[in-house]
Structure formats: structure tokens, C-alpha cells
Design a binder for these strands. Structure first.
Lengths: 203, 203, 203, 203
DNA sequence: AATGAATGAGCGTTCATTCAT
DNA sequence: TATGAATGAACGCTCATTCAT
């Protein structure tokens, strides 16, 4: 990689970093391009050299964030072979990722939703990819007879929604203080529901 | 109530109705006050007579929508005496309410989130109220020995989040075509988790 | 006319007057909307209330100027019955109008041309209307046997072009100091060409 | 001339060619330097090596175009010895030149006018040079007794204006389809005016 | 000679809000 | 109560120009 490319990548990344910070602080609509330029120690023109529009910048951010989250979760799942363990790993990793990167959480769970219809496709992709990961585990678990057959589409999305909402509460309300301590309760709920079924616990 | 007051209320309500429609179509940030004025067959000045600001109008809308949703769910729950039945009724009613009033769903699940920090308090209230309803059922069920003890805060929010996410998919992606047909799968998941525990099913 | 309409018309007219002045001083492209707003003692927003865009404002100006010029010339022609006298009156009036309203001349002969393709249609209309007036005279003169048959389309446009160019020199170069003193020479040229034909002069 | 100088000239010329094309398509104000750079397969920096500013580039273009037009007309006139024949040749050649090089016509008759006051001097030079050529013929014709005395300043400019306007109509309106077929009518009008004086036609 | 990333002033347009009527 | 003309701050974006390489 030449120096020029390196510097270019540096600048581009600086803009993305600043954009994440500013967008998640003020929201898409209330963020001025000038703010991002200032925060990235660039000029407005320099920013527009790397990103053709505010929308494109936000989109690039969503892409990056979605990919990073998915990568982490996929890696965590790859370390497990048992289907339900893989689902468990996904849950743990999502909580861990969001807990460790509050801005990423804000971006994906809050700002992307209200930013406008243009961004829904990106969100759809993320949701679908996540649900696919979860559904895959569940299907495998069903195939292995670990769990009874169920509507994996609904289950996968409900699973993801349950996690998201808990994260959302943490983001909006600061409750609970440590996001990851919700893990046992969430795990239990998703595996056994509210009726518990203590006697049949897997593993 | 005098005729004047009545007319005033009529006008005010017309504005709220129009605002719901326009806000949910374009989003908070991309909605111009003029549009709402036009849609409610009022003038901009007339609108500002009834609501002191755009923010206040949106807030009033959130209030109204939240209250309406809560009222419906509370009524549905009041008809049941068994704790888990009450939770079941809540689930059914939320799906029913959102399925029958897509704009309400958009407003509460999408627009309110991204509209800015000023509206988070309202959302917090709604989430908290909902979680309280659910947690109350669960606590009662625990007290009656129907279900084992569990973290009702997490369970209540996860429950609500699971529903919301399924509704969100329906809003963003049109999937499934009929929202309410997710009810059985959601019910089963929330009660028994993915492990099913068919033998212990309540009711 | 109510007071409100009157005030509105006043404001609108003030903007048009200021726009004529500023556009003709700096050219379309180099004129900032702020300048026009300042010159018309209005706010930018107020200006945009009356005209939806810079282009529309310029277009309105062209419309007004074209119509005013045509009206003047038509009136001057209406006072004459003899075909060639009518053409003569047109020539005289155009010179008179431009001499008395330098801004109008600049607008129609300079700024409108270079302002962009969007405005060519307006110019085409003006040129066509003018040529039609002249061609009409010439056709009548031919019919009455005053002059021999000729290509009236070319003659009419050449006539108009000859006048315009002399006005243009006056605008760009200040030569001659008094525009109207070119009238006799122009008249003679248009009627008899460079060969003069002194013996056959009409009238 | 060294190879380097040659290459430089080549590059410079490529820029001028591209500039003519782009300027006449979009107008001076709406043309971005990037477009010209792209069209000339150069970089922005490379373009600025050859021309110090956008204005200077346009000016150079005007210079080149004016000079080319004048050269052509002067050559055409040099082939004739009779004064009026020389004027006739000028008329023919102008029509021929513009008909064969539409971009040159656009540049000189449209874009240069509206591009701003900075370019008026160049236009003045062109107009003056042209008028001088025509006036020279006319003066000679007067001296030889071919035509009666007349205001050669006005006649020369009116002559040029008449031609220009016909060309302008062709540029803006596409009328007539073949510019050069206006030649006979223009020639007759300029020589004999609308009154024709058929009996006295020179040549 | 040439490149293209970077600059930053400037522009057209929008829109929440005000206020005279 | 209601109207809509008017305000003005703010914003996304452009582009001529510069300069390190």
C-alpha cells in the first residue's frame, strides 16, 4: 500500500469515526455535515471528496457497523459445534459487542431506524442476516432432536428482538448499569420461556 | 361543552389525525409543518394556536398513541383473571392493535425512536408501563406457583421486545403479510422458549 | 383590491425591481439571492414566498420585460396605418425604449442569452413576436405594392438583429453616447440598404 | 521546437478543444473545471499548469475563436478586389464559418455575452474588428462612387448584427435548418434594403 | 509536467416560528 | 380563532483554486 493510499484511507476512516460519534450523539437529521468535518479535523470539501453525500456517509457507516457486528457474532458461533451452544454464543456475543461499543448500538438500534426510509433496506439486511444465523441453529437443533419443531422465522426474529429491546433500554435508560448481566435471564427465557421447565434444561 | 369548545376540539383532533398520517409517512425530521396544516385543512397559524411547537405536537401525538395502546391492552388484560392468561391477552392485543393501526405502529416503533432525544422520555414511559403490566402478570404467576421464579424485569422487556421486533419486520418488510398469524408461534416461544417443554404446557 | 393584496403586490414588485437591477449589474450567475433580498429590503424567505426559485424570478423578469417592450412597440405601431410607417415606428420605438431603460436592454440583450438554456424559450418567444410584427408590416407593404416581394422571415429577423446589435454596442461600449441618434442611419439602411437608391425613397 | 514543447502544445490544445465543447454545452457559469479536465483527459492540476484560471482559459478560447473567424473572413475578402464584392464575401464567409462550426457560433454569440463583464472587452474587440472590415469596404465603395455616402459605423454594425441575429435564431431555434440558405435574402436586404430597388442592383 | 486530495468561502433553498390583521 | 406573509438562521452541497508529492 502506498503512502498516498494509506493517508487516504486514514482520512476516510477518520471521517467515519467522527461520523459515528456525531450521528449517534445528535441523530441523523440533527447532525450537520460541518460538525462531522470539524470532528474529523477535515474540511467540508475534503469530506465530500470521500463521500458523495450525507446519506452515503451514513450508509457507509451502517454497512461498516453491520458487517462488524455480524463478523463478531459469526466468529463467536464458529467456535461452537452444538446448535444450541451456537445460539447461546450469538446471544452472548451480541450483548458483549453492544456493551463494549455503545455507539454501534445507538447507530444500529436507534438512529438507523428513524433516519428515513432510505436506510430501511440496510436494516432489513442486518435483521435478515441475524435471523438467518439464529434460524440456522434452531433448524439444526430441531434436526438433531434437541428441541421440538417450531416456527424458526418467528423464533429467530423474536429472539433478536428480545435482545435488542433489552439493549435499547440500556441505551435509553441506563438500565441495567451493566448490560451483560442480563445474559443469564435472557438465556433462560429464550431457551425455556417463562414457564421455566427446569427439569428439562439442556446442558 | 360549548359549541366553540367543541369546534376547537374538533380542529385540534383534525390536526392530530393529520399529523399522525404525515409524520408516519415522512418521519419527524422530514415533515414540514405546512404539510400538516394542509392535510388538516388548517393554516399554519391555526395549527400554532393549538400546539405551541412542532415538538409539542409530536409529543402530544406520542402521548395519545401510547395511552390508546395501553388502554387497549389494559382492557384486554382486565377481562382475564389467571395471570398467564392476562399475559397472553396482552400479547394478543398488542398484535391486534398494531395490525389494525399501522400508523400507530410506525409512530411508536420507528419514528419516535429516531426523532431525537427529546422524545426518549415518552418512549421510556411507554416501555416502562408495558413492562410493568407484563412483570405484574409474571410476578403473580410466580406467587401462585404457576411458573418458577425469574428475572421479571428482563423477561418483561424481552417479551415486549420480541413482539415489537416481529411487528417491526412487518412494518419494514411486509413480512408476514398478516401480522396476527405470528401469534401462536410467539405465544409458544414466550411461554416455553425454544426447548418447547411440550409436556409441561400450561393450559 | 384589498390592502393585503396591495401590499403583497407591492412587495412582489419591489423584488422584481431589485432583481432587474442586480441581475443586470452582475449577470444571472453572479447574482446571489441574498443581494436581491437586500436590495428589495426583504428577507430571503420573503423573496422565496413570492418566487419559488431564482430561475423563476429571472423568468418572471423576462416575461415582464418582454411584455413591456412588445406593448410599447405595438402601441407605437398602432398609431400608424401605412405599412412602412409602422415598421418605421417600430424601429423608432425600440431605440427609444432601450435608450430610456438601459436595464431592460441589458436584461433582454445580454443577460438572458448567457443565463442558460432554460431561458432560451423565453427569448425565442420575444424574437418570434418581434419578427412577426415586422414581417406583418413587410407583407402588407408587399401586398400594397410599396416594396417588391422578399423573404420576410429573414428580413424581419435581420432588421431586429441590426437594431439589437447597435443597442448592444451602446450597452457594452457606450457608443454612440445617445443611442437614438443612430435612428436615421438605421432607417435608411433598413429601407434602402447600402446602395442607397436615393431616387426611389419612399415618403 | 523540442518534443517537450510539442507535447505541451498538444496538451494545451487538447484542453482548449475540450473547453470549447464543454463551455458551449453548459455555459461558462455552469461548467466545472473538472469537466474540462475530464474531457481533455487531463487532471485538474494539469489544466491549471497551462491556464492560470478558469477565466483565463475562457479568454484564451475567445481569443482563438475570434482570431480564427477574423482570419477566415479576411482571407475570403482578400480574394476580391471590388469593395462591395468584398463585403459580399464577408457575409458569405461568416455564414459559412458559423454553419460549419456551430460551437464557435455558440461561443461567440451566446456564451461570451452572458459570461460576465470581464469578457466584454474581448467581444468589443471582435465587434470592432468586424465593423472595421465592413466599414472599410463601404468607405471604399463610397469613394469609388458605387454607393452614396452613409453612416458607415452604423451600417457596419447593423450589417454584422443582422447576420448575427439570423445565426442566433439558427442556434437557438434550429431555424432555418440550413443556415447558408439565408444568404441571398440577407445579401439583398443589406445591399438594397426592404425597398428592393431591383433596377439598380449592383452586379 | 502532472496528479488528485484537500480547502473553504459561498450559494440556493428550506422551514419552524412570529405577528399584523 | 384563524390566516398567511414575512423572517432569518441553518443546511447540504459545489467548485475554483492550491499544493505536497
Amino acid at each position: 500500500m502506498t503512502n498516498v493510499q494509506e493517508r487516504s484511507r486514514t482520512r476516510r476512516q477518520r471521517v467515519l469515526d467522527a461520523a459515528l460519534e456525531v450521528f449517534t450523539e445528535h441523530g441523523y437529521g440533527d447532525t450537520a455535515i460541518d460538525e462531522i468535518a470539524r470532528a474529523s479535523e477535515t474540511s467540508k470539501g475534503g469530506l465530500y471528496f470521500h463521500f458523495p453525500s450525507k446519506q452515503a456517509l451514513f450508509l457507509a457507516l451502517l454497512d461498516e457497523a453491520s458487517a462488524a457486528l455480524l463478523r463478531r457474532v459469526e466468529n463467536a458461533m464458529a467456535a461452537e459445534s452444538d446448535p444450541l451452544q451456537r445460539g447461546d454464543a450469538a446471544l452472548r456475543e451480541v450483548l458483549h459487542a453492544f456493551a463494549g461499543h455503545r455507539l454501534l448500538a445507538r447507530l444500529l438500534l436507534i438512529e438507523a431506524l428513524g433516519a428515513g426510509k432510505e436506510f430501511n433496506a440496510k436494516l432489513n439486511n442486518l435483521h435478515a442476516a441475524f435471523a438467518a444465523l439464529i434460524a440456522e441453529c434452531l433448524d439444526a437443533a430441531v434436526a438433531q432432536g434437541q428441541i421440538p419443531p417450531l416456527d424458526t422465522w418467528v423464533a429467530a426474529h423474536a429472539w433478536y428482538g428480545a435482545i435488542n429491546h433489552v439493549v435499547l433500554r440500556w441505551l435509553l435508560n441506563g438500565e441495567p448499569a451493566r448490560l451483560e448481566e442480563t445474559y443469564p435471564a435472557l438465556r433462560s427465557l429464550l431457551l425455556y420461556g417463562v414457564t421455566g421447565a427446569a427439569g428439562e434444561r439442556v446442558k
